[in-house]
Write a protein that binds this DNA or RNA. Structure first.
Lengths: 270, 270
DNA sequence: CGGTTCGTTGAGGCCCATCAATCTATGTGG
DNA sequence: CCACATAGATTGATGGGCCTCAACGAACCG
């Protein structure tokens, strides 16, 4: 159950990875200006640490105070809360490149826990420094708002899934969203050819259930159904979607909430 | 279906009402410094308009562009989205004093519609001016982030309701949240005495269903159950909770996500 | 007073939860 | 190298919460 700072040579790249995370997050929020802005100017003096963590590692306990802003550099993680009757609820997944505890910037103590689903690496920025930057640099403040907005859009869609979709559609809709968040949207196959776009999600059926408001038993049966339809395969700890575009074609998934044109940061900063 | 700018004498108070809305929003987000900061200094030159609107008025249509930042001054409103199969989903309610379309600050076009549940008044700030302010004044940027965070926390709790609670608890939990958001928390009876705290919510059972992921039929039956338990009365368009503290006592509702101490703005602005 | 919206009630059925057992994969220690 | 432990996946039986369809009553409004 140990994890450790990445030593030596890899430490030098912590700063680089942090910038990459910010670029990923902000590019996803369509703030193109930040791709260049952030890297050199804004975060040059930050004390970014990179940590390797094992699968199952709890990065943050519910209601624990926290003195760092975390980004997930590689791997998969999830937020969780424990209800009074002992059940677990998962309000959100976190994929690589996304911020983990944005609320820490404004809120003392997270209202959720944070656990790794896989092994991976986590970047951390001292909270005081991050807050200072947010307060002093308008571009940073704007970037923070953009990230909050993205989380809001994702949460809003999640309420739609939970409130309005039956299990099968709930699952498909989630998989579609994750395909976009991991950058594997159907049309954007990196090769120009018309090859299928595979996606692999390292998640247990228990996590899926807690995320989708279903029991593991029903998640299992729903997965079987989708397996029989040829939409996915599932092994232990793992769901494989051989062709993401197939999912998109049958789900009428509208990714605009993840992609819509935002106000260009440039016009705001002028 | 007409609505109009408030003429003459009342127009003069638009600015005042806007400041009140900001104070309400930010005080709720525990940013005490803003109570004084915002009123005179920050928003002095904004062209705030106040509009009276009738019940049922659609303030914003889904996917419509929008050129104003809206605050709900008085009355009740709700966000809604229409699913592909024609059903309506309600991701959030808006009570007086809360921002309506925060996302407009960063996002071209809302991804939800906005409708009044009651008659009321709406304050609007030209979007360009609001964005300018957000970009130039760190305090405003920080305030915006605070408001996003508050929405975020409310959405997160909503996913817990939808994903983990049965109809009865879902409804009670919602009522508890609304009691806090309207400032009618059980303990905070304005008179020091131990009188009961009543709350009145002007909402139809159809809206409740679309908000809680239930059918109107089942909302109706659940309300009947709570009525028989003496927890509430419901008339047409209206739910009355005679004693909010009763609800709180049976629901184990934890309002910390609405109340927890935030980072004081003062320390950030120093 | 007629139309429209909202609320209410009943019958029937399905989706999904619950309970419980079995199976598999993985890892661990003797 | 095997017995054992553990976590996750799978399967079946049963039941209940909530949906669906449909009709009627009640309140509101022009």
């Amino acid at each position: 159950m140990t994890d450790f700072d990445v030593p030596g040579a890899r430490l030098a790249s912590a700063q680089t990875n942090f910038n990459r995370c910010l670029r990923v997050s902000l590019a996803r929020a369509h703030q193109p200006r930040f791709r260049e802005l952030s890297a050199r100017k804004l975060f040059a003096n930050l004390d970014v640490r990179e940590r390797q963590v094992i699968a199952g590692k709890i990065l943050l306990r519910e209601r624990d105070p926290c003195d760092a802003l975390l980004f997930l550099n590689t791997g998969w993680a999830g937020k969780f809360v424990t209800t009074r009757d002992g059940k677990r609820h998962v309000p959100a997944m976190i994929v690589s490149g996304e911020p983990c505890n944005l609320s820490a910037l404004l809120f003392e103590g997270a209202d959720y826990g944070l656990q790794m689903l896989t092994a991976g690496t986590v970047l951390s920025v001292p909270l005081a420094a991050a807050r200072d930057l947010q307060a002093r640099v308008p571009q940073v403040a704007h970037a923070v708002s953009s990230l909050f907005l993205m989380e809001n859009a994702i949460l809003t869609q999640h309420t739609l899934r939970l409130g309005r979709l039956p299990a099968r559609e709930r699952l498909i809709h989630l998989l579609c969203e994750l395909s976009y968040r991991t950058g594997l949207a159907s049309g954007s196959s990196s090769r120009g050819s018309s090859g299928s776009t595979p996606m692999e999600i390292p998640i247990t059926q228990e996590w899926l259930g807690d995320l989708l408001g279903l029991t593991t038993v029903h998640v299992n049966r729903t997965l079987q159904q989708l397996r029989h339809e040829g939409l996915l395969q599932s092994r232990s700890h793992r769901i494989v979607v051989p062709d993401v575009s197939l999912l998109h074609s049958i789900s009428a998934f509208d990714p605009s909430y993840l992609l819509s044109p935002r106000v260009d940061a440039e016009t705001l900063m002028a």
